[in-house]
Amino acid sequence: MNLKDLFQRKTTSNVNELSSGGVPYHVAVIMDGNGRWAKKRGLPRIAGHRAGMESVKNITRAANDIGVRILTLYAFSTENWKRPEQEVEFLMRLPQEFLLLELKSLIKQNVRIQILGELESLPKHTRESVSEAVEKTANNSGMLLNIALNYGSRFEIVNAIKSLAEEVRAGTLSPDDIDEEAVNSRLLTKGIPDPDLLIRTSGELRLSNFLLWQLAYTELWFTDVFWPDFTKEHFYEAIRAYQKRGRRFGGLK
């Protein structure tokens, strides 16, 4: 038996170990460690970001294959603008490059693309490429690939509060009617169920301003693996860990 056969056997075994009834409906991922992956290899940071694109492709396919209905990927935060100009420019071209290579495959997989974030501040070429992807996949009925691009959770929550305040001032909303659902309906994720599982790579143990409201009862799973090295095997490991947990949402079971 050659090494390829061994790897394929291992992959099949890992997939079969998953409980089909316990696959999380919504998985969110903080894709971290691209820069450190590159530094470890003596490469520029942008090399790590490009390598990370391969993991995006592989994990999107793996999630779709096992029945995940929503996959939310944290691609670029509102704080990432503070990075060196050259790196930011490269990151702004990555969605265009990724979609140019992968859009046909995503359409074939029946994946629907949605962008989560403030898009007006993005370069024109970035906006155009992601808007095209959203438009071309709009009628797909499979997994939702939710790309968080220029996204910040505090910014999102502040805007939701402003929206509620404006409605109260206009007399179209009573303060007594403001509840969790009222807030939910004014977030960028309105209509999308909260994540069941959050995965963060690279060994960091924080949320980094990502889906702070939505992650209230999400199961968290961390790994030391850098994002470019994160394979579908690691993804299945996270899913298996999730399936072994008891979700009580504050109650007793």
Results as ranks from 00 to 15, higher is better:
Leu3Arg: 14
Asp5Lys: 15
Leu6Asp: 06
Arg9Trp: 11
Thr11Val: 13
Thr12Cys: 02
Asn16Thr: 15
Glu17Pro: 00
Glu17Gly: 08
Gly21Leu: 11
Gly21Met: 01
Gly21Glu: 14
Gly22Lys: 14
Val23Leu: 05
Pro24Gln: 00
Tyr25His: 13
His26Arg: 10
Gly35Leu: 02
Arg36Asn: 05
Trp37Gly: 04
Lys39Tyr: 11
Lys40Leu: 09
Leu43Met: 15
Ala47Tyr: 00
Ala47Thr: 09
His49Ser: 07
Ala51Cys: 11
Ser55Val: 08
Val56Pro: 01
Thr60Ser: 15
Thr60Met: 07
Thr60Gln: 00
Arg61Asn: 06
Ala63Cys: 15
Val68Ala: 11
Leu73Thr: 03
Thr78Asn: 08
Thr78Asp: 08
Asn80Met: 12
Glu85Val: 15
Gln86Val: 14
Leu91His: 04
Leu91Val: 11
Met92Ser: 02
Met92Tyr: 05
Arg93Asp: 15
Arg93Tyr: 06
Leu94Trp: 02
Gln96Thr: 14
Leu99Val: 01
Leu99Ala: 08
Leu103Arg: 05
Lys104Cys: 04
Gln109Glu: 13
Arg112Trp: 01
Leu116Thr: 06
Gly117Asn: 08
Leu119Trp: 00
Ser131Cys: 06
Ser131Pro: 01
Ser131Phe: 03
Glu132Trp: 08
Thr137Ala: 09
Asn139Glu: 15
Leu144Lys: 12
Leu149Ser: 10
Leu149Asn: 10
Glu156Thr: 03
Ile157Cys: 10
Val158Trp: 02
Asn159Ile: 02
Ile161Gly: 06
Ser163Met: 10
Ala170Ile: 03
Ala170Gln: 12
Thr172Ile: 14
Ser174Ile: 08
Asp177Ala: 15
Glu181Met: 10
Ala182Val: 08
Thr189Glu: 11
Gly191Glu: 12
Pro193Glu: 07
Pro193Ser: 05
Asp196His: 09
Leu198Lys: 00
Arg200Ser: 04
Arg200Trp: 12
Thr201Arg: 10
Ser202Gly: 02
Gly203His: 05
Gly203Trp: 10
Leu205Gly: 00
Leu207Tyr: 02
Leu207Asn: 02
Asn209Tyr: 05
Phe210Gln: 01
Tyr217Gln: 12
Thr218Gly: 07
Thr218Cys: 14
Glu219Val: 12
Trp221Glu: 05
Thr223Lys: 07
Val225Ile: 14
Val225Asp: 05
Phe226Val: 14
Pro228Trp: 09
His234Ile: 03
Phe235Lys: 04
Tyr236Trp: 13
Glu237Trp: 03
Glu237Cys: 00
Arg245Glu: 10
Arg247Pro: 08
Leu252Ile: 14
Lys253Met: 07
